[in-house]
């Protein structure tokens, strides 16, 4: 499949209550690599299998949650064309100058109808610590902690999910492999620019701008089990799992960082194509959709957000 335009999730910037505890959690426990701490206090991290400089940015603040989620484009031309389409659609677009994050080119930002800030960018330096490309080993150093390979996706909570779906699919060229529809309307949507079952997802929720979870990709079910071992050993707050999602088929554990931001480690997920019919879940089956083995939602799924 030829992929043009937006490629994948590129950067997630989240708020943390205590930077030192958060670095221990994301680096030592989840297994990300520490890239840098800059003068404004923000900390930059990267999955061991990612090529570009950073994918996670931590900002210490008085509240937890997500500042923005950014997608990487294949060229500045693509970003410029999306900018025109976003403005024609009627959203205000602002410019973030190159260098506002180290090693990162200019970005454009806008707020979607659910209250979330989304950004697009084309340029980021390759990491000094990127995977090898010449007769490469699978990794230089054995992965540590939960062995997260990359920042994979996020699930965001907010109102106006119908408008969000319209925007992502008609303006940003996402396709929508899976959704949950309840009698009073769409509850949740999973969307992608790639072959992954999802690159971003939204659940309808009264409060705007909320983070349900930020997800990291692992190799297989064995690594999910190992991640669970790490969580107990270090008394990490666990939400649900190890289990499987009916939606996306990913195997998963939900847990919380030291600020209460929900994280996910997950593996698998089906391969999505634009010409596949949409998978739809309803109010009778949403339990199995979210938690395939448990077959019921827990209270936290719909209410615990940051």
């Amino acid at each position: 499949m030829s992929q043009e335009g937006l490629l994948r999730p590129g950067i997630a910037q989240i708020r943390v209550l205590d930077m030192e505890e958060s670095i221990t959690h994301y680096v030592d426990r989840i297994g990300l690599n520490f890239v840098s701490k800059e003068a404004d206090g923000r900390v930059y991290l990267k999955g061991y299998d990612e090529f570009h400089r950073h994918s996670i940015v931590l900002r210490e603040a008085d509240t937890a949650g997500i500042d923005f989620f950014a997608f990487k484009a294949d060229s500045q031309d693509s970003v410029d064309q999306y900018r025109k389409r976003i403005e024609e659609y009627g959203l205000d677009v602002d410019d973030v100058p190159a260098g506002e994050q180290p090693g990162t080119g200019g970005r454009i930002g806008f707020t979607v109808a659910s209250g979330h800030r989304i950004e697009l960018y084309a340029d980021m330096d390759l990491s000094d610590d990127a995977p090898e490309t010449h007769s490469p080993f699978i990794w230089r150093e054995e992965p540590h902690g939960m062995r997260a390979q990359r920042m994979d996706h996020c699930l965001l909570y907010g109102p106006n999910i119908d408008k969000v779906e319209e925007f992502f699919t008609t303006v940003l060229d996402f396709h929508l492999p899976e959704r949950v529809d309840l009698p009073d309307g769409t509850l949740a949507i999973w969307m992608t620019v790639s072959n992954k079952a999802h690159d971003i997802a939204f659940v309808k929720h009264d409060e705007p701008g909320k983070l349900h979870h930020l997800a990291f990709f692992l190799e297989d079910w064995n690594e999910i089990g190992h991640a669970a071992d790490v969580m107990t050993r270090y008394d990490i707050s666990r939400d649900v799992g190890p289990t499987r999602h009916g939606i996306t088929r990913g195997q998963t554990i939900y847990f919380f960082d030291p600020s209460g931001n929900r994280n996910e480690v997950f593996c698998g997920g089906y391969t999505a194509y634009k010409d596949h019919p949409v998978r739809v879940w309803d109010h009778n089956t949403v339990g199995r959709g979210i938690f395939y083995y448990e077959r019921q939602l827990n209270e936290a799924f719909l209410s615990v957000v940051t």
Binding site: L17, T63, A64, G65, S237, D239, F256, D257, P258, S259, G260, N261, R262, E299, A300, S303, V304, V305, T306
Partner: peptide
């Protein structure tokens, strides 16, 4: 007393 994130972020 409700249980949420257990980490000071969610208010539960």
């Amino acid at each position: 007393v409700r249980v949420g994130c257990r980490q000071g972020g969610c208010g539960a």
